[in-house]
Simulated scan of single mutants.
Amino acid sequence: MHKIKNAAYLWAALLFLMQSAYAAGPPWKLATNGGNLSISFGLLAQPQFESLDNPSATESLENLYFRRLRFLAGGKITQKLSFFIESDSPNLGKKGFDGRRNSEIFLQDAYLNYAFLPEFQIDAGMLLLPVSHNTGQSAASLLPIDYGPYSFLASDPTRSKVGRDYGLQARGYIKKHFEYRLGLYRGNQQHSGSFPYRYMARFVWYPLDAD
């Protein structure tokens, strides 16, 4: 039997602190007087409690850990050129049945964005691929505990981290209702001449407001 329970009291305290920080804007931000050059820092922490029953053992395995612990940085280099960097430590401190605790940390997002217009922007770097609406969501905006079970199935065969890939893509919003993303991506973290590049396109029409 597999039971997953959220630590509600930790979530309540975290959400209270996040709401206070959100109302005041980014908690750590440096900017020039004109605002054309700036950098902001952020933190995403998602604590979780989990209880696992092992049929072959007499005791259950209980964990209080960080489902996600991310450090974020982003800002403007010029009025139209911006950047974003994010690390991740998924399941930080989670202990397995072998007694080992997870301590992995890696760079998850790193890209430059040049906004010619809101209707036409270019991204280059380690990008989140536009496979679906769910895969393109921020973890902070999810209503359930986690992403769908099929959202990042392509990560293993492409040896990528949670749906990310190196590449170049064009994107934009047209009249605030039509969104498009067109990209060329490396296709594999250890790319060789025999492994094809990946092409992807996604078009979405929002009848009400853009997501």
Rank of each mutant, 00 (worst) to 15 (best):
N188I: 00
Y147C: 04
G99W: 02
N63D: 05
G96L: 08
Y147W: 06
L107P: 03
A140P: 02
Q189P: 04
L30C: 04
F106T: 10
L81A: 10
G125M: 02
L15Y: 08
L184I: 08
Q79G: 11
G172P: 07
N91F: 14
L10Q: 06
D211R: 15
L15W: 06
K76C: 05
D98G: 01
F203T: 15
G74M: 05
K29Q: 15
K95P: 03
L142D: 03
L184H: 05
P47Y: 05
V204W: 04
R159T: 01
A21R: 00
A170M: 07
N102V: 07
K80T: 11
L168T: 01
M126A: 12
L112H: 03
S132P: 01
Y206H: 15
F41C: 00
P90I: 05
Y9Q: 12
E62G: 14
K94I: 13
N134E: 13
A201P: 03
P118C: 11
G136A: 00
R171F: 07
L81I: 08
S192P: 07
M200E: 09
F41E: 01
Y199K: 09
Y22E: 12
G148L: 12
K175R: 06
S155C: 04
Q48M: 15
S40T: 09
K5A: 08
L128H: 06
Y197M: 11
D123H: 08
F84E: 02
G172S: 05
P157R: 02
S138E: 13
T135C: 04
Q190A: 06
K29D: 02
P26G: 01
G34R: 08
F116N: 02
N188P: 02
M200S: 11
R159Y: 02
Y65V: 15
S20R: 14
G42E: 07
P157D: 01
G99N: 00
G187M: 06
A124I: 11
A124M: 10
Y22S: 14
Y197V: 11
P27I: 00
L37E: 15
L10R: 05
R101A: 14
N113T: 15
